[in-house]
Design a binder for these strands. Structure first.
Lengths: 192, 192
DNA sequence: ACCTGAACACCGTTCAAGT
DNA sequence: ACCTGAACACCGTTCAAGT
């Protein structure tokens, strides 16, 4: 932590504030205080608060890509790989809801394009390859890989977001994201 | 508009501001200005800004329930009814994204519970009945109605939210919410 | 190159005071 | 009962100025 640039320190501080206090806790004043600079020093490193948050998102997307790649290269069965990939995203939604929303549900951040868009597409691409393995193994329908990946990812995202929004009460008959995804996989399986 | 209470005027003004300028445009100062009262007059009618937004959501949920009920009571085929119900929500997501997020993706609003929760559950219930008709007609799997409804609704929500967040670029192989939902219905159909 | 302090134009919310 | 005006404690952002 000695050899860390101010840029990195700012991103790390912003990420910690996001996880501990949610989006509105990431004020430039709090970030500056955590790093030991003034509240407008971040403007010397990032164009705006949104640009700083986009840098946080880039770092997390890169980590997700690595985790997905590790899963894909493992010796597990395709469906096991898929469930592990699901679990990573679902756990993120549960443990760090503000971070999840930054990555997957924030129009202002996604609109920045550039490096963020590239990194996010890489994450999606790794996920798509795991889906492809399931298709090749006959565990998922042999339709367009991208269409199926988008459908699965969107369903998972919808379930996570609805649960985080408090709109998936038990009386709605949905016990959670995981069982719902298991149900979907089962319904989609070509083997009966 | 003569015989309108101040409460109603505030809700209507807030809703209009939400649709035209997004969530951050709904400031109590702007709402007050639109109605012709001071910027803190709303506090005499609602506990907070969030309570005012919750009242906006209640009004829209009630409208959605009515529209779903009308569809359900029509003479159309079950799958046609379902597609019309989808279309109403999808159109809302496209035409009034901020309103859509208020209704379906805002944890702070949903956390208010009370009348909002009841109204939202009624909307969901009407939707579930349309899904049930499709199940009875053999167009959708005969599993738990609530589980299937939640799955369909979550998928639609995930697709809408990902599109609104700018994360469903054409190069991801997804041409839009509607075709993706059609694909899902087709994949889920018991008839082959 | 990098940072600071003061300032600006906003917020939601509170409160004493008016009718 | 209902509303107002001033005030408070925040924001993101800008800018002149310092080293």
């Amino acid at each position: 932590m000695a050899a860390m640039t101010t840029d990195q320190k700012l991103v790390i501080a912003a990420s910690a504030l996001l996880d501990s206090g949610g989006d509105e806790a990431v004020t430039l004043r709090a970030v500056g205080r955590a790093v030991g600079v003034s509240h407008n020093a971040p403007y010397k490193h990032f164009e705006s608060r949104n640009a700083l948050l986009a840098a946080v998102a880039v770092a997390h997307f890169a980590t997700l890509t690595d985790m997905f790649r590790t899963i894909r290269r493992s010796a597990a069965k395709p469906t096991t790989k898929l469930k592990r990939a699901f679990k990573i995203i679902i756990d993120c939604g549960h443990e760090n809801p503000a971070r999840y929303r930054l990555l997957f549900s924030n129009p202002d951040i996604a609109a920045q394009g550039g490096e963020l868009e590239r990194t996010a597409l890489a994450t999606f691409g790794e996920f798509a390859e795991i889906v492809r393995e399931c298709q090749s193994a006959g565990q998922l329908p042999g339709i367009s890989n991208k269409a199926l990946t988008g459908l699965l990812f969107s369903t998972m995202h919808g379930l996570i977001d609805r649960e985080a929004s408090g709109r998936m009460r038990p009386d709605k008959g949905l016990s959670g994201v995981r069982p719902s995804m298991d149900l979907l996989i089962q319904l989609l399986s070509p083997n009966k």
